[in-house]
Design a binder for these strands. Sequence first.
DNA 1: ATGTAC
Length: 474
Amino acid sequence: MDITLVQETPFRFRIERQDPMRVPGVVFATRELLPQATGDKALEQVANVAALPGIVRASYAMPDVHWGYGFPIGGVAATDIDAGGVISPGGVGFDISCGVRLLAAGIDRDPLAPRMRRLMDILGDTVPRGLGPGGLWKLSGRRQLEELMVAGAAYAVEHGRGVPRDLERCEDGGTLAGADPSQVGQRAVDRGLRQVGSLGSANHFLEVQAVDRVYDDRTAAAFGLHPGQVCVMIHCGSRGLGHQVCSDHVKVMDQSLRAYGIQLPDRQLACAPAVSVPGRDYLGAMAAAANYARANRQLLTEAARHAFAVAAGAELDLVYDVSHNMAKIETHDVDGVPLQLCVHRKGATRALPPGHRELPDDLAEAGQPILVPGTMGTASYVMAGTAGNDAFWSSAHGAGRVWSRHQALRRVRGEELCEQLESHGVAVRPASWRALAEEAPDAYKDVDAVAAATEAGQLARLVARLVPLGVVKG
DNA sequence: ATGTAC
């Protein structure tokens, strides 16, 4: 499909509807951030998504949009489930409920400085990471894993890994309803049994950061953040279990397309009506994998807490935990009519506005915390949800790639990058030189520009800027 | 994203 891109404002573009698109595309970005500039086909994918059965209003792209499997990463699409609207695993992503959690430390960067090396050494020794098996927990078997997949982060807390307040600061209270472990295949279970409590690889990390700048004192205070404060940011997902769930259900849906009379511009958009048997089966498996990811982040939190207690005598309070690879059934007004929608957010963070009933009381006035990790060596942002959000309460999830992993490997050497980061005062504990090179800051868009465009496009507002002190890399 | 894959 050759797309026609029309600039509506300095921060918003429209992709004109043409067959087989059912709705237009809307891209929140500046001209510099558009993925086309680098030959990336993400905007063609935005147009492809607009052809999904039941899609309403528009196919959206966030400022960090880039190419992905079927859907672009940084894509948002909502389908009307009472009008044949579909669920597409490719609109969630292979890493189901991949997400970010931010912890606020009871210590500032200056007093931590002399203890930083010890802290990083403990984190480096105790945080499982990299490809393959190895996690903080070894589960006894399928039965125990099923309990974890039903209860999510709450399962970890019930077993002494965390405090009840943690769950108040998790999206969905740490437990996504509707999990159906019977739809998680044995192969996914086998992979999941040995990876609970592990970062994984690629762009996953555990980072020690400091608050570099506060844009909104009142909201920062509500989030428990102040200038100079140390934080921990954890980015990880559902590991091999989520990957296997996605693979298994994509295959089923690909084979059921004909039965539901669904025609698609790209087979990677394989989908089924959200209320159909394959649709419900996937949603149940997806929720189970999501709860696995949430338990995973909860366990890694406990590893960080242990390291901070030993090295710095400091505690870590959860600011918020939110996914950026999810589909959720939500009610939204479309042309003045409340509809039950299946909202796909792939590489896009949910961004609830102030006063939303799903927010805990102490965050109601501020709006939902939105966590926007940058890259090793660059800033990360904390933002807040706004009432003006026009993308089904969704926002950017990170910097967004501009180089493929292959390109990054050709241009960057991991050892050199590590030296550069260390010389700039960022301690690095990598899983491998190769993974480090693939995640070089130069392989990503400018996160400062992404955050600025996110605010200018009225997707969210700036609260605080965080800078890295040390990174444990997957 | 991922025991870089059926």
